[in-house]
Design a protein around this nucleic acid. Sequence first.
DNA 1: CCAGACGTTGTT
DNA 2: GTCTGG
DNA 3: CCAGACGTTGTT
DNA 4: GTCTGG
Length: 228
Amino acid sequence: MCGRASDAIDPTGYGPYEFSHIRIPWRKLYNISPGQEIRIARRVDGAPDHRYVRWGLVPFFAKAEPDQLPVWKFPTFNARSEELEQKASFRHTLKRQRCLVLINGFYEWTGEKGHKTPHYVFLPDYRPFALAGLWDRWTSKDGALELVSCTVLTRAAGDFVRALHSREPVILPEDRYDAWLDEGNANWQRVLKGGDEPPLQEYVVSGYLNRRGAEGPECILEERTRGN
DNA sequence: CCAGACGTTGTT
DNA sequence: GTCTGG
DNA sequence: CCAGACGTTGTT
DNA sequence: GTCTGG
């Protein structure tokens, strides 16, 4: 899965996009959920772009009431990387609408419903990294309304995350950012695979994360049960 | 032809 | 059970 | 992703 | 918009 993320470390200076050389005001966020805005880097007609978009891809063909944004009722905040070409909601974005979803950690849950335990998954020093994503742009017929949105690709969990869940987001190493964003690169499947496992770390955080509107450093405080 | 779907994760 | 809001 | 709502008439 | 099912 990957249905909750943080973007809480200033990205300045990280990565070839400098996360990115097109600067936008960065929002320090510890608890980003589907439906909210998340930060991406992409190319639009070849030109680099860096912005916030809705997390949960709304296809360009979605229907909407007059003067309203569309309501897309299928969960599209994740897309299975193995089946992209068979999915009407994502297929059309593969050629020219790839993006990097820029975060510095994500959450995974263990346990039964009603007793869900959130875990925080991140890299050494909480450093920022990029997930493979796809974006789309919906516009109203009269062109007055626009909705740019994205999805995070998932894959079978690797050795580390497998202890928590069966699926995980596709993490791109820096040396693959350009290959993923390159429209000319039809061999996108290879870009998503291979490479070393990133040196992920993980710990349990408190149930504070599950509260509506939870935000701030408390979201990633390591839970210490009993003493310590 | 028209109508309806278009999805994920984690399930019983 | 299913949808909405965060 | 999880948590919380899920409703009407007629109102303080 | 495009595909599938009837």
